[in-house]
Design a protein around this nucleic acid. Structure first.
Lengths: 254, 254
DNA sequence: GGCGAATTTTGACCTCGATCAATAACCTTC
DNA sequence: GAAGGTTATTGATCGAGGTCAAAATTCGCC
């Protein structure tokens, strides 16, 4: 059912194939020439290796980054000087959104494995989005999505048990892989137990213990960094039935 | 040092006085007519009372909301059905940014006390910002600021002790009050211990105990909801010296 | 002003997960 | 394939903070 204003998926894939910009292009009616204009400002760099910095805390903010292949972690410095992971970024996901506000990155970013990235010069993106209302709208959505994701994460960290956190982490990975066309039940963890623990507010030993427990219970098959989810439903049940965001019954305002 | 493109502060204050839109206007060079256009779309409603809903999870997203006076909490539903606080919003702060992405609010919002709010119809704001590049830029900054704030919060929840969390909470409140021209060392907590605990991932009893401990140590003077900070430096020391975001020495990439 | 509900404080106890420590598995590099 | 480093697993112990319970204080509200 092609609508007159919406560019065909094929065309977008051609223009964006190389840069995983589908994040920005796909969900909206961008015209062909707009996609071209967007594509024209994208920079493509040599891939990063595990441990390489994409940027550091305090670096001047110039670009947004989109993960093409591989994976990236973002992190801040803890009081005692070690890394505190605040996010993992998989293919198709965007980094650097937190830096728009004050012109410098508030957290560092490093590759977790061999990783290809494209860079979007933010000032040119801003110029473009002034002229392309649907691109502006899409940028707002992108930022907003990050905010709601963070709110979910805060709710998770604020209240949950170790079991719920690990379950929730696996479900999130599963869904994100699925959305990008990878297997949702069989994947590699490019991050270490240490990094997972840091992200979830748990000790690395606790993460390891839960992985083995889930395996014993027949929920997972874990082999070092290779994970298979055998019983997604049981995982879902742990984090509270995923009642999504339905309004259901509303509590009267006292 | 007035620059030709920058509207005078007085003019902005006149246009925004009533709606606390300084968040959007102040930091940038909006022209007088732009401020007027912005002001023209603002809706001003009757104040809310403690417990009143500003919006509920699942409500359709129409407006951004700016707190004029009072305070608001945002919250999600926990698995067991009770409220999980994910944010407190003081005068001059904006709510609803998380809802842009999918057209409905992901969390509910309620007044913590008698609260005046102004509403900004988002579609009109979006139209305006297409025509006013500096407004668009400011919107991006606003969203980005929310994201970096969330990242800090995630780092706090992910790693800290109860002591650090409560200290950090008090410092945050202090700074936010100060920024809006209220006292930074002497203020009311419009939220209950329960709500603070929920927000910080602590039991309400733990919050209460820490308040009394801080008082015993001469750091605070607490009287129910009225708090005086007597030794801000000691509070700061608890959360790790606020080394801000300086680049200091950079770790070489392995 | 006095009664009942809600909130806060304080105390006692116990659990979950952090921490410490020791293997074990794996991944380099020579 | 042996040596050395890194990462993961498993076990044992301990303490911060959760939970339960009761008292104290405050806040409506009739």
């Amino acid at each position: 059912m092609p609508s007159k204003n919406v560019i065909s998926l094929d065309k977008i894939k051609v223009a964006c194939r190389d840069c995983t910009l589908s994040t920005l292009c796909l969900p909206m009616g961008l015209r062909p020439e707009d996609v071209d204009r967007l594509d024209a400002i994208v920079k493509r760099n040599r891939p990063l290796q595990r441990g390489d910095h994409l940027f550091r805390a305090g670096d001047a903010f110039r670009h947004l980054y989109v993960v093409k292949t591989g994976a990236v972690k973002t992190f801040t410095q803890t009081n005692e000087g070690d890394e505190q992971v605040v996010g993992f970024h998989l293919p198709g996901e965007v980094l650097g959104l937190d830096a728009i506000q004050d012109g410098q990155h508030g957290c560092g970013a490093r590759a977790l494995e061999t990783t290809a990235i494209c860079e979007l010069p933010f000032d040119r993106l801003e110029d473009l989005s002034s002229n392309i209302p649907s691109l502006q709208h899409q940028m707002f959505r992108l930022l907003s999505k990050e905010i709601s994701h963070d709110a979910e994460m805060m709710a998770l960290l604020g209240r949950s048990t170790a079991e719920e956190r690990v379950a929730s982490f696996l479900i999130s990975l599963s869904e994100r892989f699925k959305r990008r066309g990878f297997s949702a039940t069989d994947f590699f963890l490019s991050m270490s137990r240490q990094e997972i623990g840091s992200y979830l507010g748990l000790a690395l030993e606790t993460v390891s213990r839960l992985f083995t427990r889930f395996q014993d219970e027949g929920i997972l098959k874990v082999e070092r960094k290779h994970v298979q989810i055998l019983d997604l439903e049981r995982l879902r049940a742990m984090v509270g039935h995923p009642a999504s965001c339905e309004p259901h019954q509303a509590t009267p305002p006292s």
